[in-house]
Simulated scan of single mutants.
Amino acid sequence: MEKQQPIIFVRYYVIFLIIFGILLDRHTLNSISIIFILIYIINNQLRFFSFSKEIYKIGSYFLELILILVLYEKVGGYAFTYLILASIDANVIFKFPLSIIFDAVVIGEGIYFSVPETIACKMYTIGSITAIIAILLFVKQQETRKIQAQDLYDKLRVSEKKLIEANRDLESYSASIEELTVLRERNRISREIHDSVGHALSTIIIQLGALEKVSEKSNPSANSRIKNLREFTQKSLAEVRNAVREIRPEKYEEYESILELKSLIDNFKKMTGVEVRLTVTKDKWALSQKQFLTVYRIMQEFLSNSVRHGKASIIRILMNFTEYSLVIILEDNGVGTATVSKGIGLKSIEERIKEIGGSFYYNTSPDNGFLVNVEINRNEKIKIYLSNSGGAEPDGKD
């Protein structure tokens, strides 16, 4: 149990009773008696408030048990008050099984003190000490259960918080994947319509134009129908092209680089079986060729190192497009490492970033996973921050 105010008050009250009993039992005290009393009180207070190591507390408690015998025999007082304080400390300071052992020793001293007394006094002393110990054990048990319940509640709260965060990540991941899938499918459909239906209608228009010229003199009535059919087909082709423009994502070049990165991730997942979650914000802008190639190589290197060196099983990637920059967060649950030596992979990333005016920093520690924060400005200036790593390249490996 914790050193709470009620316990402290009870201890000081019992110490007061011990001193008061000594004064009542022995009217005259010499210097040696006072020294023993001071040693007893100082030892008791040091054990309760100052000693942190278990071995010091145990030694102090055994010293107190000896001092109780000396004080009761040589100085006087009431054995009952000595044993109450010893019982309190046995159950407040020490844990099972030491508390039970010291309780047994306290009861043993109670039996020793009651030997010269009458049977009724013996029963009263031993019964009282036993009852007090039983109460202390009960209170300690309830306090332990309370602490365990609080610990369990705290763990549940932490688990709930992690579950909420994981659910939020999964929702973002699911939304991003769904958005990218829809974009890719819309682009595929628009391309298929353009290449198949559009091409067929264009061919029909060309053929109808040729027939219209042939029939212009030989068959004027057929020529008029062919002309109407050609014009109708041209309108149909225009409508098809409008539909293709509607289906095709607006400013599709903004999504092409993301779809390329998603293809990289999908292939990586198929090859390794590692779970990779890609989340992309709705607002996007097109990456330049240098920016895309740099991001592609960083992501490629991160995925590779997370598996080879970090032994990761889950990788999370967030692409956050803002008005002026793109922030990419790459994180895995790898094993981490105490030191990182730059291999070919990290040196290659550093060179690519320097080429577009960027820089990067990193650190790592064991069992903390690997986190990379990449910031790309639209003017192609890159800053990279690496921290808490598990997927970095340890010991100079590539």
Rank of each mutant, 00 (worst) to 15 (best):
R248N: 13
V240T: 14
I258R: 06
R241K: 13
E254N: 15
E246Y: 09
E254W: 02
A238Q: 13
R241H: 13
S257N: 14
E239N: 12
K251H: 13
A243M: 12
M271H: 11
L278E: 04
N242W: 01
T281E: 13
L237G: 05
T272K: 12
K282V: 08
S263G: 09
E239W: 06
E254Y: 09
E246I: 11
K282R: 13
V240K: 02
G273D: 10
E275N: 13
E260M: 08
S257D: 14
V280R: 08
N242A: 08
V240N: 06
F268T: 06
P249N: 01
D283L: 06
S236W: 01
R245M: 01
K284W: 04
R248T: 12
D266K: 09
V280T: 13
R277G: 14
P249F: 08
K282F: 05
V276Q: 10
S263F: 04
A238C: 01
E239F: 05
D283S: 13
K270D: 10
L278R: 01
L264Y: 08
V276W: 02
K251M: 03
L278S: 08
S236L: 12
I247A: 01
F268N: 07
V280F: 05
R245G: 00
E253N: 11
K284Q: 14
S257V: 04
R245C: 02
A243D: 04
L261F: 13
K270V: 04
